[in-house]
């Protein structure tokens, strides 16, 4: 009973909000380019379903590419850094500088490097920059997170550097890597959309492009439809990675 109430509460609340919205728009005769009624949004979604879903998949694929690239780069650099404190001191400031620089500020530069004919590459590159930091940070922290007494145990039994890395540091880093990838996955989707706003030129037809297109034509209902699918995609991506993290952590510690 309690559980049913917990589950139904958000659904009822959203339904209530939508009803108020619908009634208010109808009663006040709000112009549809300013605020379309939920029914109009639904109609716009129905009309443009194929192209919206296609665009969403384009954005998703770009985000996943960005995540993969960021993951490989971040793990490789973190591993190098973990083996040498000097390397960490050298790399850290650059990584931080990269993180605090707004992605829109470096977009034009990445556009030039990617070549104006390849806007997708620019989008992937920019989203990868955004997704890089949480994975890198998690990996660096995780590789140092082993129990100090376990480190002493490895000292005691004369473990080699490779043994220590493979049997202690890497497995100890797993929870931190999972968390980093989960955060990075969300950021990669956001990064891909933002990057597309800046670099998109019709050559990369993701969701951001649909939003720009609809905005330029004052098709506000279609914008809402695109936003809706963007939101749903974000929630789905987050839920998927959350489930993956929960499952992997359970495997990792056996409970």
């Amino acid at each position: 009973m309690r559980r049913a109430l917990d589950l139904s509460a958000p659904i009822v609340f959203v339904a209530l909000l939508l009803s108020v919205w619908e009634i208010a728009v109808q009663a006040l005769h709000t112009p549809p380019y300013l605020l379309p009624a939920p029914s109009a949004v639904a109609a716009a979604f129905e009309q443009n379903r194929a192209i919206l879903i296609d665009s969403a998949l384009t954005t998703l694929v770009m985000a996943l590419w960005a995540l993969a690239i960021a993951s490989i780069a971040a793990c490789a650099i973190a591993l190098t850094v973990a083996l040498s404190p000097l390397a960490e001191r050298s790399v850290r400031p650059i990584a931080v500088a990269l993180q605090v620089t707004p992605i829109v500020a470096i977009a034009p530069l990445v556009n030039i490097w990617a070549g104006l004919d390849h806007p997708q590459r620019a989008v992937i590159g920019l989203a990868a920059v955004v997704a890089f930091f949480p994975i890198f940070s998690g990996a660096v922290t995780g590789l140092k997170a082993a129990d100090p007494d376990l480190e002493r145990l490895f000292d005691l039994y004369g473990a080699t550097r490779l043994q220590r890395l493979r049997r202690l540091r890497l497995p100890a880093a797993v929870p931190f890597l999972l968390e980093g990838h989960k955060v990075a996955a969300g950021l990669a989707v956001i990064g891909a959309v933002v990057a597309e706003f800046v670099s998109g030129s019709g050559g990369s037809q993701g969701l951001a492009w649909r939003l720009l297109e609809a905005a330029n034509r004052l098709q506000t209902a279609k914008m809402f439809a695109a936003l809706l699918i963007l939101g749903l995609m974000g929630v789905a991506a987050h839920a998927a990675f959350q489930a993956l993290e929960t499952w992997a952590l359970k495997e990792w510690r056996g409970r």
């Binding site: 007494d149 002493r152 490895f154 202690l168 056996g254």
Partner: peptide, 22 residues
């Protein structure tokens, strides 16, 4: 040590076999 200091990701057998394998 004061705490069991076992590797949380490894099974009991793997934990005990560690010194030998190292």
């Amino acid at each position: 040590f004061q705490a069991p200091t076992l590797m949380p990701w490894a099974t009991g057998l793997d934990n005990v076999a560690l010194p030998l394998e190292l």
